[in-house]
Write a protein that binds this DNA or RNA. Structure first.
Lengths: 350, 350
DNA sequence: GAATTTTTGATGTACGTAAATCAGAAATTA
DNA sequence: TAATTTCTGATTTACGTACATCAAAAATTC
């Protein structure tokens, strides 16, 4: 049988009340007694029964998710996953609220963080805009004992507890490797469509992509980055322009959102470049099936949300997390390994 | 506040004892009363607090994992993940035992299943050999109320509760697509190294690989399958022989284990075929880094084990599972997106 | 050494559910 | 209707922890 608080009391030769004081960091215990109890805990290998503790505390975890607003299929899919988690909140003792802020807007994000801080939740998950002010807000939260997890896009210079997202440099490198191999001997430059260099995930993807192409496929030119701000209309205009200016474009790497616009532009393009994009949405899925896109690198939003919740709860309780379980993988989808469409998939009209 | 059993009792106008009888399917309740209680449960939206219930029951879940013995890096990695889960059993209320049986041996597997049946565990996870006798044993377990999850390799003609593994047909298709694209215009046939056609995962991978190569890359010949029984020595001999008989081999698809032998053969081969293999082990990882292997399709053994445990526990309690969470993904590793090596990785000497 | 403060023990209640017992009520059978 | 069987209610204990209260013991201060 697993040892209980009673066993600690017996082993340490103290009362249950004293054990409780030690375990829950309550005052009124002499250092010698505290050490005696701690040694007994160590000795008998006591592990707190979190389920029982949560029951006794009637613990619930109020969590806040902050993510960009706007017409972005991936982000709306992410939001849908958060809503799915809300459905499960009765089981998971969570109480989740969603806050949306304008995309790529550091001051707005900072304001949202401050507002969330005031509520004093058990934890905050945030799709970060990489800026010092945002990092400062996050650090204040941490100093105040509120765990923070960055979601999808990480935050430099902050002591956030965890990043629930993929290794974006590796994703970019993978895209570079696939692009280089898929193109083979085909001549022509490669275009890159990004959302904004203000978010770290986009910067890292670009960096990885560039590194591999430069190192392993020299002679392949990369055109100046097109910044489409994850907006389909802007993306379409930029891609159309690039394809007109450089009719010999051999490949396009779309490392952000706004793929709907990219796809529209591709449909009317006279040439057929090799296209690698990010995030599996209804649009990229169809384009993959129609061979307009050759490969899609994906991060599973559901996994990211569930991971963020697990980590926030664990951090709130001061518990360890299973590192391997929380590593978010980069999925590579070709048209041959598309997962079955599910009800969970964001709606077609998004 | 979430409704409790007391609320049901009040709402149905019955006593707590009757609610308990209904909830836990105990006898001694008239049909009319039972229906009254069930309607009240429905009406107030009661959800059983599993944590509290498990606490009251002092519930533990005895689980049995059955997997092939032998010198197979992937299977030993799987076993390591099961041992990691055993480490967590105090937290997860599980009590896991591991049984190993000779590989590709249906009678031995059946015997192991019958033995596990006798213990009457809360659930069984099994790496299946695809045979009618094994399916019959599994069906008997199910009829007896013991949930069964197939792990890594599925079982035809059984009513196992769940399959914790990847879509192997899709994996084979993906391999075919990558092979076709990576080879480009390079001439020469493709060799396939498998473990055994007795396991469904290998059959499915081959089928998917063939389908894509035939459909999308016609003109590419596939040599007769080499069956290496997941044994490094045998694999090496077979690959060496094939490379000698067909010096023009352009690609090799290794869809089973025994990759150590394949790699040894590759090192001394005068030609450099494009190689796609399965499962990231210390050996395939190094071969990938050394560019002896071009791509590795991987299933995360840790995810599979954790998923199997979650599903078995849920089934034992008659609860629903989050489908999306339990879908095991096919990881595609190129040398550019290798995950960091971790302590969890199977030891080098395996 | 008395008065004070700090530390410890003993005890009870609570969380939400499970499970058991026993008495009493209702339904069924004779 | 009486005797029997079947249901139902009331109550208690338990799971492992949290948390509060009050008394008693020990340590500290003056």
């Amino acid at each position: 049988m697993r040892p209980t608080v009673h066993d600690i009391a017996a082993a340490a030769g103290v009362s249950l009340a004293t054990v409780d004081r030690v375990l829950n960091l309550r005052p009124g215990v002499r250092t010698v007694t505290r050490e005696k109890v701690e040694k007994a805990i160590e000795r008998i290998g006591y592990i707190r029964d979190v389920a029982a503790a949560n029951l006794a505390k009637s613990r619930i975890y109020p969590l806040v998710f902050i993510l960009p607003a706007g017409d972005n299929s991936f982000m709306r899919g992410l939001e849908a996953e958060i809503r799915a988690a809300i459905e499960r909140s009765a089981f998971e003792r969570t109480q989740i609220s969603i806050v949306t802020v304008p995309a790529f807007d550091a001051p707005a994000l900072q304001a949202a963080l401050e507002e969330a801080h005031a509520i004093r939740p058990a934890g905050i998950a945030v799709v970060a805009v990489d800026s010092p002010e945002v990092a400062a807000s996050v650090n204040r939260l941490r100093d105040d004992g509120i765990p923070v997890v960055t979601l999808v896009s990480d935050l430099s210079g902050s002591n956030r507890d965890h990043f629930a997202g993929v290794d974006n440099t590796a994703a970019g490198r993978t895209a570079g490797n696939l692009m280089g191999r898929f193109l083979g001997e085909r001549p022509g430059p490669v275009a890159v469509l990004a959302g904004s260099m203000l978010v770290r995930d986009h910067r890292e993807r670009l960096e990885g992509f560039r590194a591999v192409l430069d190192a392993e496929f020299p002679g392949r030119t990369i055109l100046p980055v097109l910044e489409g701000h994850d907006d389909p209309t802007e993306a379409e205009r930029l891609v159309r322009g690039a394809l007109e200016t450089h009719p010999d474009i051999a490949g396009i790497y779309s490392l952000g959102a706004g793929n709907r616009g990219l796809i529209t532009a591709l449909k009317t393009s006279p040439s057929k470049p090799c296209v690698i994009a990010h995030e599996l949405t209804p649009h990229t899925r169809r384009a993959l099936q129609d061979s307009l896109i050759d490969a899609v690198l994906n991060q599973d939003a559901g996994h990211e949300v569930r991971s963020a919740i697990r980590v926030l709860k664990a951090k709130a309780d001061g518990l360890a997390v299973i590192g391997a379980q929380e590593r978010i993988r980069i999925d590579i989808f070709l048209k041959d390994n598309l997962p079955f469409d599910e009800a969970r998939t964001p709606r077609e009209d998004l």
